[in-house]
Design a protein around this nucleic acid. Structure first.
Length: 942
RNA sequence: GCUGAAGUGGUGGAAUUGGUAGACACGUUGGACUUAAAAUCCAAUGUCCAUUAGGACGUACGGGUUCAAGUCCCGUCUUCAGUACCA
């Protein structure tokens, strides 16, 4: 009987689906384990072999946990709102829902044929109204929350209103906008409803505000900071400009400290934690208020070095700083305005690229040093960013290189306040091992002491306080797109109103075209039925808008990360029981959070941060029981393509084999990798007949070397244009899903970037054939009740130990090697013993589940192998009676010598020293020293 | 610049506490089987010297610690990722 993988795999995939083998239960005596993949965006291109890598790893782990007696939740779904479907809709008029549906069908087919143990009964789709109903619901929760810094959690907005009514806002310590005027209870109670709502917006965790946003004209939408890469849009690489717009924002900054502290409680890689830490960007220091000479205005700055306050010799404001126009003297006005105009013209990108050029202008105004009362010149300069801190810095040239360079360039004084430090060439930026000098009451103190004292003195003057600053900005939450969640928001007199939660979902309206309107409104501006009737609680036609009972609805939609920030909770309930809240209380309590999350590191500052934020909010408001969504996180590396090149001689239709290209003027051209064999040889006929290239190659002449055409190879990202994309469908058809699964794991460590090369798959495929032959011969099943030999048991238990350790360390590549060694050994031992071969199948079943199920059933078992207990490792089978000692001379291994394991140190030394090879090696010399490590090594020195 | 990860044969990679560097595969070479090919099986395969026996060198580079270093320490270089005038 042959190893007919196509038939076997289909058979078991059908079996699993029919028997709902992997359906998780919400009530079980077993301990729970939740294994999750980052759900895919179903793109039109389908899956390539890189995509399943993480899914295979998580599937192995999920299957292993089932063997280990866990109740495993391993769901899958689709992040189905997104830009590509919308752009396709703009081009073709096809409704994004239709394209998305078709793409999901392709994804499902491709995923199914790889044999994943997903519980599909819990599938979610973020674009499904039954799903985004709860995304809208969470949005309303955010709107109805404020962050109380006293209790350090989000609370119902009603508690804030009560405080305002009783005490005004002066006793409230909240995360809120900076420019809030203090008011008393009486004042609050006298405010109009609109005034009250305006104030509350400054406290809500999602708020509408005019903010400077990243506008991408090409895409016609705003982008969040994490959606911009190198100054251009992440999708499409279009330019991005700054623009002021009224947008919904998420007050994630309120959670900056908790997002930072929480990292210590979760099992993520340090690399990823560092990315989030840097993104949050905490700096501890002080805020200092400088009086401006001749004005009532003051300038607040943030500094991490309050200890250097006596080193201040000038101040710099961002050109956009609001005080600039006010304090600039008549004499400097022209110069300052010219500079501001010049900076405004420079794009963000130019400013970023050009860090070296020092520029700035003196405003003519002076500030007063809080302690020495000396006048300090106020400059403007574009190295100071309006968006960070207060948009102003106190410049300490002796302690900061940029300030130093600026001072040198404009010939400003550089007072030295460090004891015994030479600052003639560069600034001294270190906080360590230095004492402060020339600084009045700070003299002789170190960084820590001086900072503390400086802050204390500033507080005494009422001109400063200790302060912590975060780089983390609030996240813009509005997108000018069609294919996203609509906001549950309508507007009365320009004030946003939430639709009552009872009336959700607010379903995405139909539009004729998916483009922005001619007036520049988002695509929802084209919807005819997009107004809210507050009497009937229904979406009604726009022409009914009367601004008394019927009002216009919000035209923006939510960003891509809205739906993905909470989907892991939705899986906790199977689809049949999803009603009421977004997952039942019991389900949330039982599954808690994700035990193992696998996905790409590109989501480090997006999805992974936003999810943590929303979970903390939901926890604060009492909807979930956990503070963190993902306990353990692993980032799988990317699988890269191995591109192939032919070399066209310039201005000819002649292609030279790789070995003939030296000194020739050739142009490398990508060719489809499917025409390349394992030896890098080109299938010329296949290429010539490929219809996609028309006649390009039909008449081409290929110059061979040694009878073949050799192509060049290079490792690049998989992409259609490089013809290096490998489709898993082809691999499954040619070698089977088990081969694909094993090979993806065998390629290398899970977290590493590594190239795909289809040629290598014959190795694991051959292994599966050998495995099959161990159980089945041409005459049928070979397995019998033979007593296992000592060697059989040794092989088995060595394998159990290694595979178990490997899975727990996510070192899947090495366990594939271990399987190969085990099968090679058992084949050599001619093992037919059921007691050995049955546990071997269980070991291998997480990796190659189809062949394991098939052989398991052929061995006479009913039911699936997937819940059979994992074999127990018994150390007694690995106890050796002798050891092959490496005998080294001066650290170099010369020969090995088999000696009993229980031989004493002295006896080992005597035996080794008496050995003829030792005598030959020493050649008459007397060793200085002999090192014997029993059970390990012998080293003879001298 | 700063932060993090990494650098081992022709290729992917292995070497869990310092203890036989290159497991397991791919590729290559030679052989068996075959009319032939595929498939399968066997052998060799880090580099250099040597007919053999054997020897020298070898984990990016330069030092160091140690009986012993891919592994530990110091310095340098390169690659990748994140971030970027962050006060």
């Amino acid at each position: 009987m042959m190893y007919d993988f196509n038939t076997i795999e289909k058979k078991w995939q059908d079996h699993w689906a029919k028997n709902q083998t992997f359906k998780a239960s919400n009530t079980s005596d077993k301990p729970k384990y939740y294994v999750l993949d980052m759900f895919p965006y179903p793109s039109g291109a389908g899956l390539h072999v890189g995509h399943p890598l993480g899914y295979i790893a998580s599937d192995i782990y999920a299957r292993y946990k089932r063997h280990k007696g866990f109740n495993v939740l391993h769901p899958q779904g689709y992040d189905s709102f997104g830009l590509p479907a919308e752009q396709y809709a703009i081009q073709t008029g096809q409704h994004p829902a239709v394209t998305t549906e078709a793409n999901i069908a392709t994804y499902r087919r491709q995923l199914d044929q790889i044999g994943f143990s997903f519980d599909w009964s819990r599938e979610v789709r973020t674009s499904n109204p039954e799903y985004y109903k709860w995304t809208q619901w969470i949005f309303i929760q955010l709107f109805e929350s404020w962050y109380n810094n006293e209790s350090n959690k989000a609370e119902d907005i009603k508690t804030l209103i009560s405080k305002f009514e009783a005490e005004g806002n002066t006793t409230v310590n909240a995360a809120c906008d900076e420019n809030i005027e203090p008011f008393t209870a009486e004042a609050w109670n006298a405010f109009s409803e609109v005034e009250k709502q305006n104030i509350l917006l400054k406290y809500r965790l999602t708020y509408l505000a005019e903010t400077e946003v990243n506008w991408c004209p090409e895409l016609g939408t705003v982008l969040a900071n994490d959606e911009i890469v190198n100054g251009v849009s992440e999708r499409g690489g279009h330019p991005v400009v700054r623009k002021k717009m009224t947008q919904w924002s998420m007050r994630i900054s309120a959670y900056a400290e908790r997002l930072l502290q929480g990292l210590d409680t979760i099992d993520w890689t340090d690399a990823l934690k560092d990315i989030q830490k840097n993104w949050i960007g905490k700096s501890v220091g002080a805020s200092v208020t400088f009086n401006v000479n001749g004005h009532d205005d003051t300038i607040d700055v943030f500094t991490t070095r309050p200890d250097t306050i006596f080193g201040v010799s000038f101040m710099t404001l961002a050109p956009e700083h609001e005080l600039v126009s006010k304090i600039t003297t008549e004499a400097q006005k022209a110069e300052v305005e010219a500079y501001i105009e010049k900076t405004a013209k420079r794009s963000e990108r130019d400013r970023m690229a050009d860090v070296k050029t020092i520029s700035g202008v003196f405003t003519g105004a002076y500030a007063e040093h809080p302690f020495s009362k000396e006048p300090i010149p106020i400059w403007i300069g574009d190295y100071v960013l309006a968006s960070y801190g207060t948009g102003a810095v106190m410049a300490v040239p002796c302690g900061d290189q940029r300030d130093f360079d600026f001072a040198k360039h404009f010939d400003i004084a550089i007072p030295n306040i460090f004891e015994g430090v030479d600052i003639s060439e560069e600034a001294f930026a270190s906080k360590d091992n230095v004492k402060i000098a020339n600084s009045d009451f700070l003299n002789g103190m170190n960084y820590k002491k001086a900072s503390k004292r400086a802050i204390y003195e500033l507080e005494q003057l009422g001109q400063g306080e200790g302060k912590t600053n975060y780089r983390l900005r609030d996240a813009v939450f509005s997108r000018q797109r069609y294919w996203g969640e609509p906001f549950p928001v309508y507007y009365v007199d320009g004030m946003p109103q939430m639709i009552d939660k009872a009336h959700l979902p607010i379903v995405l309206p139909e539009v004729e075209k998916y483009l922005p309107t001619e007036e520049g409104e988002p695509p929802l501006g084209r919807a005819d039925v997009w107004a809210w009737d507050t009497e009937n609680n229904a979406v009604v036609s726009n022409d009914k808008i009367n601004h008394t009972t019927i009002h216009p609805l919000e035209l923006n939609t939510m960003p891509g990360w809205a739906g993905s920030s909470w989907y892991f909770f939705r899986y906790m309930e199977d689809a049949a029981n999803r009603d009421g809240v977004f997952a039942s209380e019991e389900a949330l309590k039982y599954w808690e959070n994700v035990d193992l999350y696998i996905g790409g590191s590109e989501h480090a500052t997006g999805h992974l941060l936003y999810s943590r934020f929303w979970v903390k909010l939901l926890k604060d408001r009492g909807f979930v029981n956990v503070e963190e969504p993902f306990k353990k996180l692993i980032n799988q590396g990317m699988i890269l393509g191995t591109s192939a090149f032919v070399y066209r001689e310039e201005n000819t239709n002649t292609y030279l084999s790789k070995g003939l290209t030296e000194d020739k003027n050739v142009l490398p051209i990508h060719v489809k990798v499917k025409y390349i064999n394992a030896s890098d040889e080109l299938d010329i006929e296949g290429l010539k007949q490929d219809s996609e290239f028309g006649d390009d190659y039909a008449d081409a002449e290929f110059i061979l070397e040694d009878g073949v055409y050799k192509v060049g190879r290079d490792v690049e990202k998989m992409s259609k244009s490089k013809y290096n994309v490998v489709n898993p469908d082809d691999i499954v058809a040619d070698y089977g899903a088990d081969s694909l699964r094993l090979y993806e794991m065998f390629l290398g460590p899970l977290e590493q970037y590594k190239p795909w090369n289809t040629a290598g798959i014959t190795g694991v495929h051959g292994f599966l054939k050998k495995l099959w032959k161990l159980y089945v011969s041409e005459d049928g099943l070979k397995v019998n009740d033979a007593e296992p030999t000592k060697d059989n048991l040794k092989t088995l238990h060595k394998t159990i130990k290694k595979v178990q350790e490997d899975i727990e360390n996510f070192s899947f590549n090495t366990s594939v090697s271990t399987f190969m060694i085990a099968v090679n050994e058992l084949t050599a031992q001619k093992c037919t013993s059921k007691d050995i071969l049955e546990p071997v199948l269980v070991l291998i079943s997480p990796y190659a589940p189809h062949i394991a199920e098939e052989l398991w059933s052929q061995l006479g078992h009913e039911g699936s192998i997937s819940t059979v207990d994992f074999p127990e490792f018994e150390a007694s089978h690995l106890v050796e009676s002798s050891k092959k000692y490496p005998i080294s001379f001066n650290g170099k291994m010369r020969f090995t010598l088999e000696l009993p394991m229980d031989m004493s140190k002295d006896d080992i030394e005597k035996t080794v020293m008496a050995h003829e090879k030792t005598i030959a090696q020493l050649d008459g010399r007397t060793p200085k020293k002999v090192i014997v490590v029993p059970g390990k090594i012998v080293n003879i020195v001298g």
